[in-house]
Amino acid sequence: MAHAGFTSDLSGTHGRTTLPGLGDEAVRVSSPAGTSVLVRRSNLVLRLDASGDIENPSRGVTSTARALVGSLR
C-alpha cells in the first residue's frame, strides 16, 4: 500500500532525481515552484516539501529527509 501511495504521489512529476541509500525508494522532485523529497521505507512514506525564497532548497530538503529517515532506524 505504501508503494502505491509513493507511486501515486510521483505521477505527472518531472525533474526527478533518485536518492540511493535513503530508503526502499527515494526521489527528489524539483520544479520552479520548489522541491519535494519522497521517501518510502517499508510501509512508511515521508514527503517533505520546500517552496519560497530558500537558498538551495534541494540540498536542504534532501539533508532533512536523510536526518528524519536516519532517526527511524
Rank of each mutant, 00 (worst) to 15 (best):
M1F: 14
M1L: 15
A2T: 04
H3N: 12
H3E: 15
H3F: 15
G5T: 04
G5A: 09
F6N: 03
T7N: 14
T7H: 13
D9I: 12
D9T: 15
D9G: 11
L10F: 08
L10M: 13
L10G: 06
G12V: 10
G12I: 13
T13K: 05
T13P: 03
T13W: 04
H14F: 15
R16K: 14
R16S: 12
R16G: 10
R16D: 11
R16F: 08
T17L: 11
T17G: 10
T18D: 11
L19P: 02
P20A: 10
P20Y: 05
G21K: 12
G21N: 12
G21L: 09
G21W: 09
L22M: 15
L22E: 12
G23L: 07
E25Y: 10
E25P: 07
V27A: 07
R28P: 00
R28E: 10
V29C: 06
S30V: 08
S31E: 09
S31C: 09
S31L: 05
S31K: 06
P32A: 04
P32C: 00
A33V: 07
G34Y: 01
G34H: 01
G34D: 02
T35C: 14
S36G: 15
S36Y: 08
V37Q: 06
L38T: 09
V39Q: 01
V39N: 01
R40G: 03
R40Y: 08
S42G: 12
S42F: 08
S42C: 09
N43I: 04
V45R: 02
V45A: 03
L46P: 00
L46F: 05
L46H: 02
R47W: 02
R47S: 07
R47G: 07
D49I: 06
D49E: 11
A50L: 11
S51G: 13
S51Y: 10
G52P: 00
G52L: 01
G52M: 00
D53P: 03
D53G: 06
I54H: 04
E55T: 03
E55C: 02
E55Y: 02
N56V: 07
P57Q: 01
P57Y: 00
S58N: 06
S58K: 01
R59F: 02
G60S: 15
G60H: 14
V61W: 00
V61G: 02
V61F: 01
T62E: 06
T62C: 03
T62Y: 03
T64C: 08
T64H: 04
T64K: 01
A65C: 10
R66L: 03
R66M: 08
R66W: 07
R66D: 02
A67K: 05
A67R: 06
A67E: 04
V69L: 04
V69T: 09
G70L: 04
G70Y: 07
L72V: 13
L72K: 08
L72N: 09
L72H: 06
L72G: 12
L72M: 14
R73D: 15
R73C: 14
